[in-house]
């Protein structure tokens, strides 16, 4: 299935792009996050990255479907 992934803050910097369309066979939000961390050396443990699917924050076990838009957020501290 195809999923649109958007990266924010330090994740964008580490991934090198703000968004991308990926072809994947992961089933859940957690699996997606883990696979992206491995693939792109995002440098944060999965527990510190929050994902929103189609405009709402999602839980680790939530299933993904073809065409979903996933936003990945790291904690941000700057002020």
């Amino acid at each position: 299935m195809k999923i649109k992934v958007r990266y924010f803050a330090v994740l964008r910097d580490r991934r090198g792009v703000g968004e991308e369309l990926i072809e994947t066979d992961v089933r859940t939000v957690r699996e997606l996050v883990e696979s992206l961390i491995r693939q792109h050396s995002l440098g944060l443990p999965p527990s510190l990255i929050r994902a929103a699917v189609n405009g709402s924050f999602a839980n680790d076990g939530d299933k993904l479907s073809d065409g979903d838009e996933v936003v990945l957020l790291p904690p941000v501290s700057g002020g």
């Binding site: 803050a9 790291p74 501290s77 700057g78």
Partner: peptide, 18 residues
Amino acid sequence: CLFPETPPDACVGTCAEE
């Protein structure tokens, strides 16, 4: 509720670093 684990300051950059 959003970030269940308190992230350590060292794991993300601050204005000074980034």
